[in-house]
Design a protein around this nucleic acid. Structure first.
Lengths: 261, 261
DNA sequence: GGGTATTTGTCCGTATGTATT
DNA sequence: AAATACATACGGACAAATACC
């Protein structure tokens, strides 16, 4: 018995799913039925289902059954854009171009002390005062991303008071800082990691609480003309419904069939 | 009883881990000990451990025990580079710069027919003949990425016979095509997704077979001066040991403390 | 190398709770 | 309210991997 029984059951079910014997979105036999079908105990059948669940092949719904997961048509986010641009405008342009309806919540603004990653990314001392602006973004009503931007409090002291208003900044904060204070963004750097979502993220994105859907965590640091870091934006996207795109050099426009499936 | 018992146990253990009561890399009490400690059954304790395992907080080793996972110092891959550059040289430069030792296997070369994603990405008909070159890459002996490049067979017919040699191409395939055949890469596009690794990937990367560590899958399409797609490179990186970086505009060099942890 | 103790992995059966139809 | 289906929890038995003597 090289393979444990629950793995054999899982592999057989996976084969049936991939062969199309079990349709996308379709319901699997109940645990009791599978128990008889494979001559195993219900717990062993559940182990097999759990194995498939971890791999995102099926999902269970109490009272209803176990279902083959449907493929989500991914939303595409392009990370490369004009160096002087903020994130908001790029985001809006893309979403509108794909004829979807975006919605961004009003920001929750907080005064904080930068610690750990935040301080390191902004190149400030641990404990430095910063403004954080946190927003939720939706597309067609689906929760899409959580975004938090951090600005050194020194910008506010210099008069950039819009940063501490709990309303969206017309045209975006980056354009506001450029137009009003001459702080022009000449470049930015993104650092992309993948991690398990925390509790508030799972509840906002409505992903299963068992941590099998991970999230992209993107740190974007903006540089001004002196090479100083004047903002940090941390954006979190669920990996199950998002795809990131990067263009370098001369690239023709994306067309529909470019999307891998 | 809002929270199930196994969640309460898991939360308590997580708290102890995050508070430092259980050290990184340290061993948890045995399942039997935890069973007595929390006055639960061994299976319930195991459910709690499974919950923590899915979130990457602990890992189990048969015959040894359950351990708090250690943080892996991530390797950083910069996706933005010179538009005319291949991937190999950039990769080598980065690895050498961080004083690590890279190793790339000789390629496994196959003649294939492009289907599905491959055909779509190259903008060729389904079933078109292509050359695939598959390589394994290591850093300091650790498996780091799996890479497969696809080239239309028409390039070989035009004389680019190095593509079908099962040896590394000196200076990289992109430079070879530019120097010998005038096929200059003027830009490329990366499309980044996250998915669960398949069986050969879990075994190569030595990640747990239960699918809780996912992988980056990056499709890189190269464009020539006519805007045509002449190569596709698919690279897979485990997300637990890799971080991707993108630079746009003018960005100062990375320094050590930039690394989020 | 072999044997033994320890520890996690697999599998069973059963009972009860909770969500949905 | 009743039926259905998955979720939680218990206890027990044996297997497999590892460490240690």
């Amino acid at each position: 018995m090289a393979e444990p029984m629950y793995r054999q059951i899982a592999d057989d079910l996976r084969r049936k799913i991939e062969a199309g014997e079990l349709q996308r979105g379709g319901r699997l036999p109940t645990e009791i039925d599978l128990r008889e079908q494979y001559d195993a105990s219900r717990n062993t059948v559940r182990d097999a289902i759990k194995w498939l669940t971890t791999r995102g092949l099926v999902e269970t719904r109490p009272g209803q059954g176990t279902f083959v997961t449907e493929r989500i048509t991914p939303f595409v986010t392009t990370l490369t854009g004009p160096p002087e641009g903020g994130d908001e405008d790029v985001y809006l342009a893309e979403v509108v171009a794909s004829s979807r309806t975006p919605y961004t919540s009003d920001p929750r603004v907080e005064m904080q002390r930068a610690t750990g990653n935040i301080a390191r990314a902004l190149h400030v001392e641990d404990g430095t005062h910063v403004v954080s602006r946190h927003q939720q973004r939706f597309i067609d009503g689906t929760p899409w991303s959580l975004q938090t931007s951090f600005y050194p409090m020194t910008l506010v002291n210099k008069g950039a008071t819009e940063l501490i208003q709990a309303t969206s900044i017309e045209g975006g904060a980056v354009a506001y800082l450029a137009a009003q204070f001459g702080i022009k963004q000449v470049g930015y750097r993104d650092s992309i990691a993948v991690r398990v979502p925390n509790e508030s993220e799972t509840s906002f994105f409505k992903v299963p609480a068992d941590g099998r859907v991970s999230v992209f965590e993107i740190y974007r640091v903006g540089f001004d003309e002196m090479g100083e870091r004047f903002r940090l934006t941390v954006t979190v996207y669920p990996t199950d419904r998002n795809r990131l795109v990067i263009n370098v050099g001369e690239t023709p426009p994306v067309d529909v069939q470019d999307e891998p499936s």
